[in-house]
Design a binder for these strands. Sequence first.
DNA 1: TTCCAGGTGCATA
DNA 2: TATGCACATGGA
Length: 275
Amino acid sequence: MKYKITKNCIEIQGKDDFSAKDILECGQIFAFNKTEKGYVVFSLDKKAEIVETETGFKIITCDTKYFENFFDLKTDYGLIKSRLSKFKILENPIKFGHGIRILKQDLFETLISFIVSANNNIKRIQLILNRLREKLGKNMGDYYAFPTQEKLLSVDEQFFKDIGAGYRASYLYKVVRQVNEKTLESWRELPTKELRNKLIALSGVGPKVADCVLLFGYGKKDVFPVDTWINQMYNKFYKPLDNREKIRENLVNEFGELSGYAQQYLFFSMREKAN
DNA sequence: TTCCAGGTGCATA
DNA sequence: TATGCACATGGA
């Protein structure tokens, strides 16, 4: 995919391998808004606007370098999709979500966000995370940054209940005391399995949340997060199983190093078609 | 009113 | 190791 970087803008040429809707609404991120012009996306204390043009997309931001990496622009998704096309089950999902790209998100923000996501719906996840930004994040003018760990350490469990986190409040209270960005960063070079075990040991992190952090934060593609939608998908298209761990194992065995990508196409098409 | 949402923690056997 | 249940909350 070709793109050009100018002062405050990344210009994406072509629409085959980039779509703001597909990227932001495929469930990997909660910090975005749909606007009249397109979308606004937030990561840490940064923001970017995405506008569709006749020939592609424009990403308007003060930090082009950050968002070039965030949107993983150097990766050839045409190649990934052609490698995935040998799987019959992905034929329609890839057509449907052709513009998906897996974001490279901040580790701590991804961890907190997906702990909130557990057994929750996307609307309410966004509601809770927005309140978290508004109450504890730095005021950036027309938006709030994601809170720093220092800020998150300054509040008690009741605070997380008050923003609507429900029973996840205690997970959040604990997890900000268990790890920080530095620790999470130091785990980057670990093999997937070992890293996964470290994540699962954290409060509020089970197999599913760990896989999401591995995929959307660490960029590990040999993981396949199994949630209710993937569970449904599996039992519709494969021999039904009631054990999510087995489902996960089977899917990782089938898609191997491309599991993470396959998961996103399948998740997005399952969820959108149900709506 | 009941069910469900990108599940996890904990007790029990 | 495996199974079953409780857990907040808001929208459909």
